[in-house]
């Protein structure tokens, strides 16, 4: 069944709010590429999802320590 424009926008809004994954979105929209996702979001003035940083600080800190080690 073909998706209506409204349904497509709702899906993109959910992705923009980080409620669904990029993969789920891309599959639902017919296996579109990530570049197309950016274009679709941009056309609707929706932001790229910014997942909550809460709970992720530790991994960011570890990656920072690995990627930019402090010289003793």
């Amino acid at each position: 069944m073909r998706m209506t424009s409204s349904e497509k926008t709702q899906l993109l809004e959910r992705y923009s709010r980080a409620e669904i994954s990029a993969l789920d979105l891309r599959r639902a929209l017919g296996d579109i590429g990530y570049g197309d996702v950016i274009i679709e979001l941009a056309q609707r003035n929706l932001p790229l999802p910014r997942a909550s940083q809460a709970g992720r600080e530790a991994r960011i800190a570890r990656a920072r320590e690995l990627l930019f080690p402090r010289v003793a």
Binding site: G35, I38, I39, E40, L41, A42, Q43, P47, L48, R50, A51, Q53, R56, R59, I60, A63, R64, L67, F68
Partner: peptide, 29 residues
């Protein structure tokens, strides 16, 4: 991607992680 950009922001290697996402969307427009 945003984690990585935030990390670069913390390292003061870039000014703003959010600005990078905004530029990507601007290209999509």
């Amino acid at each position: 991607t945003m984690d990585f950009l935030k990390l670069l922001e913390q390292e003061r290697r870039i000014q703003s992680a959010d600005a990078v996402f905004d530029r990507a969307l601007a290209a999509g427009r």
